[in-house]
């Protein structure tokens, strides 16, 4: 049997790994967004203790290798709180999400801080509460500014998700390795795996570029300040 046909036989099994890989990416981006935005707001508008807590969280999760975090949570923390039997995918998704939140919060923070103070002043002068001003004026602008940086998280997380191999999540790399150990065809299978990753990267970035174009506002973001 030729190498090509063996690879073709295993392709369906490998492709299922795409769903798992994308699932991990979705966890990371999703949890990262849901947690990262409030964290950014807390770090900017929050009280001193809130700022310190968020700052420490970010320092911890950004300072550590994913591999160490995965080991810590998979072998240490989850079993430690009685969740030892939990599927590796959930541990992987959680860790990537918590980590994503740390990174994304800093993207959002930078974007929010780049908006001129006048926007808040004008909003408050119209009688908006601080909350309404943040929600209706600051965030819609900040999210647009953050989008390019946020988009960059996608390829990062895509490649990062493969580290979940180390705790046995059945994503693309894990499945490739399983196929390798079954078929003893090493290099071609790993290269197919690499090409799938590169393709996913390409497609995702194209999609995000289209989204960026769609949300674009004349003279705003991308080009930066300048226009007045």
């Amino acid at each position: 049997m030729s190498t090509e046909s063996i690879i073709l036989d295993w392709l369906p099994y490998l492709s299922e790994g795409i769903a798992v890989t994308l699932g991990l990416v979705a966890c990371s981006l999703g949890i990262g967004l849901i947690m990262g935005l409030p964290m950014a707001l807390g770090q900017i508008y929050g009280s001193r203790p809130v700022q310190i807590i968020v700052g420490t969280y970010v320092w911890f999760f950004r300072g550590l290798p994913v591999l160490v975090l995965l080991f810590l949570f998979y072998f240490g923390i989850f079993p430690g709180i009685g969740l030892g039997g939990i599927p590796a995918f959930i541990v992987g998704g959680t860790v990537l999400g918590l980590r994503g939140a740390a990174y994304q919060s800093q993207i959002f923070r930078g974007a929010i801080q780049s908006i001129s103070e006048g926007q808040m002043t004008a909003a408050r002068s119209l009688g908006m509460s601080r909350f309404t001003a943040i929600k209706s004026i600051i965030l819609p602008q900040a999210m647009r500014i953050a989008l390019p940086g946020w988009s960059n998280e996608y390829p990062e997380m895509l490649t990062e998700s493969s580290v979940c191999y180390a705790i046995g999540v059945a994503e693309l790399l894990t499945r490739s390795s399983q196929i390798v150990s079954q078929t003893y065809i090493t290099l071609p299978i790993y290269i197919v795996c690499a090409l799938i990753f590169i393709l996913l990267n390409y497609i995702g970035m194209k999609g995000l570029t289209i989204l960026e174009k769609k949300l674009k506002i004349p003279g705003f973001g991308g080009g930066g300040e300048g226009a007045l």
Partner: peptide, 14 residues
């Protein structure tokens, strides 16, 4: 009840 107009307009850019 008190409107304000600023030197640098401060229109909402988005």
């Amino acid at each position: 009840r008190i409107g304000m107009v600023f030197q640098n307009f401060y229109l909402f850019d988005h």
